[in-house]
């Protein structure tokens, strides 16, 4: 039972990581600062920092 739970957790993590990676590749979630590639591009289009979420 313990083995099944652990393996389930491992495969779930793997699935989530892959999902995250695919999102990154699609450009949906490229920057951990603003969480969206499009937002990031807007913020970065002329400048400096993209860390700011909307404050």
């Amino acid at each position: 039972m313990e083995r099944i739970i652990v393996l389930a957790l491992v495969f779930t993590s793997f699935g989530l990581l892959m999902w995250k990676m695919i999102n990154l590749l699609k450009g949906k979630d490229s920057c951990s600062g603003c969480g969206s590639y499009k937002e990031c591009v807007k913020k970065m289009s002329i400048g400096k920092s993209c860390y700011g979420k909307d404050k």
């Binding site: 600062g33 990031c40 591009v41 993209c50 860390y51």
Partner: peptide, 21 residues
């Protein structure tokens, strides 16, 4: 200098994007 400094200040990703300037 700006993209390079941004990378030093935090992350290469915004640094790469800052090259748009």
């Amino acid at each position: 200098f700006l993209p390079m400094m941004i990378s030093t200040n935090g992350c290469v990703v915004p640094g790469l994007m800052a090259t748009r300037t």
